[in-house]
Write a protein that binds this DNA or RNA. Structure first.
Lengths: 155, 155
DNA sequence: CTAACTCGGATATCTTCTGTCCGAGACGAC
DNA sequence: GTCGTCTCGGACAGAAGATATCCGAGTTAG
């Protein structure tokens, strides 16, 4: 039950890209966060495939947000990097073994799956309720408006 | 973001153990669910270490619930098998790199972590709200009271 | 037209999960 | 009391996924 560590990088990058107005190369983002550039590239490619960020190729290229930050949820980023499939997969144990439940009695999902699925939905709902713009607002509330000004200047 | 597959086995076993009145050997539980006995043993050992089930050694030994099923939550089982640490671990990226946030400004956890942690709490709350007894009730509601009678006879 | 810079996918390494095995201990039968 | 059998418990390989890296294809600026 461990999430890919790249999710954290991807979220921070999304917040930074929201502050920037010009495309930012992957190498610059890696330097800013002091992480492996080669590996961060992988996460950014995943975000690009999910159409969360857009890649601009060529000399002054880089990445930029593909949509307004208010319409990018944290769940979008998590699913893009870590995969959209739910954490719990029901293998229909009840239909196996000597006392297998007959398939015709399995019109409803099994109780174990229902409980796990409800928790998964709650988790996703919580992540869907927060957008990248919300995160940016929180950063301002914590560290002041100057934080992003500094980042913009450094990029 | 994938959960250990053994969690499903452990939950089903807990429901079965709730129905049984005598200790049930791990091999019997494995046969009932048609899964690897050797690997299921690993999950049961984890439940035993967490004091969710109790092991009875010797000739007529096996496993039995250590507490009433009404006081065993699904979260207890999940944490015992899959680990209690949260899925998201904050590596304090904001304190790294050329524009690192100074430690004295980090009295509050970073916004990214706050969002992920809130979702994790929601997930845990949902799992904590369901007990093994609830799952057993759901099985009865789905398949009738006869299901457990059959299991008891087979054990 | 050249050249430099960018992304993108294909490629090794490594930790974690999955699956298996045999030994220590305990109960019941005799 | 002793033996035999059955049980759990932790130690041991194999597979899968995550981590980290590299070089080639394409594009833009000068």
């Amino acid at each position: 039950m461990k999430m890919s560590g790249g999710v954290e990088w991807a979220l921070h990058c999304a917040v930074v890209l929201n502050a920037a107005e010009r495309p930012v190369p992957a190498a610059r983002l890696a330097e800013l966060h002091d992480v492996s550039a080669s590996y961060l590239a992988k996460q950014l490619q995943a975000l690009s495939r999910a159409e969360i960020i857009r890649s601009v190729q060529g000399h002054a290229g880089g990445y930029e947000l593909a949509r307004p930050a208010t319409s990018i949820t944290v769940l979008d980023v998590v699913e893009a990097v870590d995969g959209a499939q739910p954490a719990f997969v029901c293998t229909e144990i009840r239909q196996r073994g000597p006392l297998a439940t007959p398939p015709e009695a399995c019109d409803k999902p099994c109780p174990v799956f229902r409980a796990m699925n409800a928790a998964d939905q709650a988790w996703r709902a919580a992540l869907r309720a927060v957008t990248i713009a919300d995160l940016a607002d929180d950063v301002v509330a914590d560290n002041g408006e100057g934080a992003f000004t500094l980042v913009r200047a450094w990029l």
